[in-house]
């Protein structure tokens, strides 16, 4: 084996080795890298009990109720399940029914998620309002697909 061949093997070995190590590491810690849990995870009980956590999903159509002041209640849904959420405070401009959101908070005793912060999660589609209007009838303008169950994904 020439010196050059040895160096080729060293470089290739390093890249493959780091790649395998990373793949193993991420398979083992996949759950920890998820930014939020989904309603399905919460209902299945696949979440740390009583802990502060992120809940992600779409604001269910027709679920938004505004109480006095800045108090609101709504449901957050993934493709399968929905969880009621209670929140008091300012919401992002993009917050509306059908919009993706990530709520930080904890599950209350009454099975209502008590949120202390609401962030909007927009998707990767960009269009002028006129085009969006013509798509209104189409289902899945805001897809539930990005809200994948942590438990189902992490195995």
């Amino acid at each position: 084996m020439t010196k050059r061949q040895k160096r080729i093997y060293a470089v290739a070995g390093l890249v493959v080795g780091v790649g395998v190590a990373a793949a193993l590491g991420f398979t083992a810690f996949r759950k920890n890298m998820m930014y939020f849990y989904t309603p399905s995870d919460l209902i299945a009980g696949d979440v740390p009990v009583g802990a502060n956590l992120e809940l992600g999903g779409l604001v269910e159509k027709g679920s938004l109720v505004r109480a006095e002041g800045l108090k609101i209640q709504f449901s957050v849904a993934d493709c399968a399940k929905a969880v009621p959420v209670r929140y008091e405070g300012v919401v992002p401009d993009l917050f509306r029914e059908g919009q993706g959101v990530v709520a930080t908070g904890h599950m209350g005793d009454d099975h209502v998620f008590v949120a202390t912060r609401i962030l909007a999660k927009h998707d990767e589609n960009y269009m002028p309002p006129r085009v969006a209007e013509s798509l209104k009838s189409e289902d899945g303008k805001h897809s539930c697909a990005p809200f994948k169950s942590v438990a189902a994904n992490a195995g």
Binding site: R30, V102, K121, E124, P146
Partner: peptide, 14 residues
């Protein structure tokens, strides 16, 4: 794609 994230997916490179 691999993980739940607040950041949206790719617009062009998908």
């Amino acid at each position: 794609q691999w993980w739940n994230s607040l950041h949206q997916g790719s617009t062009i490179l998908s």
